[in-house]
């Protein structure tokens, strides 16, 4: 077997993996502030992609579609927080698990009814012509994915570590009551994290749709892998999700090449089971240290 083909497979897979990483990053954002995640995040990706496609079909220029799509994602994130998460957290219940799953199901039905069941192509101004890097061909779309993912995550990481508001995220995560006593509103911080998480999901949708297609079922395939990435990497390392996402994407693409595309989902699930058995806090996760 030719090394170039293997490298080609690994690189295209890795670039797809970066999208899984971005969605997993969305899980991390809300987990950091509220120890809750949106199990309907995949549907949020899908709904945002459909919404953006509609904007394009209405004649919006590409840049306006990106802004519109991101705002839509953020708004949906806020809806999830208000409708599914806030009450459950106030009552210290785990009700958000079921409620966010229900949100996902509703989103799926809504998409089927509004946009139909068919997968649709998503146009992009970026060329899908292949460029040649040492015998490996990479399309402009794939490069856009990598750049987009790293840019979004980079900006949010800067926000989290370099601004006072970002430090307030960490404070709410460390001790919600103490943060409140500093005048930091935990409710607002959690809202903001859900808004950001929704925006990240929309970005993932806009980046991946030109490569795959947009359809109601795109959510389920993405979410499972993003979830594997989040669990394997751990729910608190942004760097970790990128590494694991790239590895998983490459592994997946090689598996489907050698064993057949029916085995495509296998590596993600195996990694998930392995991670839960061996390192439940994730490869990059910190074990909980509690000092009394």
């Amino acid at each position: 077997m030719n090394m170039t083909i293997i490298a080609q497979m690994a690189v295209s897979g890795a670039l797809m993996g970066m999208v899984y990483a971005l969605i997993a990053y969305g899980f991390q954002l809300t987990y950091a502030t509220s120890k809750s995640i949106n199990f309907g995040q995949g549907e949020l990706v899908m709904l945002s992609a459909f919404f953006s496609l509609t904007l394009l079909n209405l004649g919006a220029p590409y840049w306006l579609m990106v802004i519109g799509g991101l705002l839509f994602g953020a708004a949906m994130g806020l809806v999830v927080e208000r409708a599914c998460v806030r009450l459950a957290l106030e009552q210290k219940s785990e009700g958000w698990i079921l409620l966010t799953i229900i949100f996902g199901l509703l989103g799926f039905s809504a998409a089927e009814n509004i946009w139909g069941r068919d997968d649709r192509p998503f146009p992009s101004p970026i060329s899908s012509d292949a460029l040649d890097f040492f015998g490996i061909s990479i399309t402009g779309l794939e490069i856009a994915v990598a750049v987009g993912v790293l840019a979004v995550m980079g900006v949010i990481e800067l926000f989290k570590h370099k601004t006072l508001l970002g430090k307030a995220f960490a404070a709410v995560s460390a001790d919600r009551d103490a943060a409140e006593l500093m005048g930091i509103s935990a409710t607002k911080t959690i809202m903001l994290s859900y808004g950001l998480s929704g925006m990240v999901a929309a970005m993932a949708g806009i980046l991946i749709s030109p490569i795959t297609t947009v359809g109601p079922t795109m959510a389920s395939a993405l979410i499972l892998k993003a979830f594997s990435v989040a669990v394997v990497a751990g729910l608190d390392s942004g760097f970790g999700v990128v590494v694991i996402g790239i590895c998983l994407g490459a592994l997946e693409s090689l598996t489907s090449f050698y064993l057949g595309s029916g085995w495509r989902e296998a590596p993600g699930l195996l990694l998930l089971i392995l991670a839960l058995a061996v390192r439940p806090n994730g490869v990059f996760g910190k074990a909980n240290i509690r000092k009394v």
Partner: peptide
């Protein structure tokens, strides 16, 4: 005491003046 354990001492102080 309830200090923010994972954050640095200085970040803890900065958050004290959050408002």
């Amino acid at each position: 005491r309830k200090v923010f354990g994972p954050l640095s001492v200085e970040d803890n102080l900065l958050l004290g003046a959050y408002n």
